[in-house]
Design a protein around this nucleic acid. Sequence first.
RNA 1: UACCCGAUGGUGUAAUGGUAGCACAGAGGCCUUUGGAGCCUUUAGUGAAGGUUCGAAUCCUUCUCGGGUAGCCA
Length: 594
Amino acid sequence: MSETPPISQNFIRERIAADLAEGRYGGRIHTRFPPEPNGRLHIGHAKSICLNFGIARDAGGLCNLRMDDTNPVKEDLAYVNSIVEDVRWLIADWADDRLGLKPEGALPQADGADFFLFPASGSADRAARREAFFASDYFDALYEFAVRLVKKGKAYVCDHTPEEVDRMRGAPEAAGRPSAYRDRSVAENLDLFARMKEGEFPDGSRTLRAKINMDAPNVWLRDPVLYRIRHTEHHRTGRRWRIYPMYDFAHCLSDYIEGITHSICTLEFEVHRPLYDWILESLELPRPLPRQHEFARLNLTHTVLSKRKLLRLVEEKRVEGWDDPRMPTIAGMRRRGYPAAAVRAFCERIGVAKRENTIEFALLEHCVREELNRTALRRFAVLRPIKLVITNLPEGRLEEVTATNNPEDPAAGSRAIPFGRELWIERDDFAEDPPPKYFRLKPGGEVRLKNAYIVKCEEAIKDEAGNVVELRCVADLDSKTGGTTANRKVKGTIHWVAAAHALDAEARLYEALYTRPDPDKGGDDLSALNPNSLETLRGCKVEPSLAEAAPGVVFQFERLGYFVRSEEKERLVFLRTVTLRDSWSKVGHPPARP
RNA sequence: UACCCGAUGGUGUAAUGGUAGCACAGAGGCCUUUGGAGCCUUUAGUGAAGGUUCGAAUCCUUCUCGGGUAGCCA
């Protein structure tokens, strides 16, 4: 279905090629996408998904979908399901056979001193019920690993308060001070850690800490906390645990358990990498160990991508929800009619590097247009109608004209659309006092009604307030396709809908959510919200074939843009996916169209 | 100014010691029964200064600028 975007080289793919060439993992490549289920996925996650699945795809490997659910106070089961749905939508027909899932309920197997979990791929074992991976499924294994670290004298139970730990860690430029509990005996540590697990101590009273180096210039090596006490119910493990592993401890070991080879994350984890390696090496796990690689996260103009800010838009009802078509979420883009292939093409084009980057929203829209231009069927729709009457056509006369469904795709065929004496045309396609280079209808001027006649405007009828309410035109009755004057050149061609057969519809026009390209900069992003980001138009007139438009299917309304039928079944509502490129408004004129 | 990372047109991204290329955006043109699409042309770049070299975006030194890191968040 979708075309494969060309594979561009980047530093991560180069490293993988090098690992492959060296045979580091025996020719095996296994990545993972590890969202925390505390929010919905957005275009920034899409970049990571495309990178990780794209690598798995190229290398014949797998990419595990893993919920990074180690913090019970922040996470929610509802997000788990939406994340799975979003990932599946994005990789469908592209890398769905690379999606690593595990048999439902499967837990890591203890293999001597080791733990391993073998994934089932998307293509194998179709009948089995399979689910995403969950870091919380590894809590038992992780606990065992922690005990092992304690026995090696590389971790200890610390009784300092969070404030004390904070203070004693020092600052990036000033060395930290060791915990008073740093030299507890292994036996005492084992006993205390076991009792932490049993729930003997209140939240915040003790932690398990790695024993590394309080003088390390990298603060993440200053005896970081590995486990904290949380008497909180977890969405998956219920009340079984009172201690929960921290990200740094859980993540590297989850990667190890799943047999991940390349653990790809964003730049802010760069300073965590020495800790990632320290944990795996201290446990003396068999090599080759997974390795972490960092890339720069995506920034997009005219929107925000921080979970906190997106959540706020939802909670304060600045938008309709996570899937509002204006949101940069995967659900929002899907609802707006962005094809998954377009989002993937975008992710491929923006590249992967380590420098800070801000991509122009125009590039995303370009990718959407590029895909939709190839695939979307053309239809006629008039958003802001004005009546046009062809005076030299008899009343009640019905004609049918033939319209091409997609000029980019001959296989899409053509359709018949009704044509008659009375039509609706776009109000903007008539100007009583036209600006220079106005190619559309004007008093005394001629224009082509697409797929039908050339008409000449003879009269503009006005109401008492002076508004033009009806245009009376004469058609050149030989100018239809096949007619003797069909090849006459007129400068403008406009679309129309026959009044007698038009369907009423609503259209929702979206613009950028923010007026400024950088709403993240300079404090309050809410002050930069675009008050015109949604405009609802009622009384739009669309061609009759659109009655059968299925929800979620995108059409090109000729000369207007791409529109997707909304989920509302009882009436016709179309959401504007993206406008067409508009060279009229670019030359300094107001937008040619609504 | 502790450590780490980064710096190539307006925005991104290639070039891995040998002609600075591509895409988007911008400008101009051709074509057009979508002012769409397509096609052609074009503007614009290696942060600075030294050094190595026949040759440097690339290697070295210093500087400048930007980002990250001090959660019992991920």
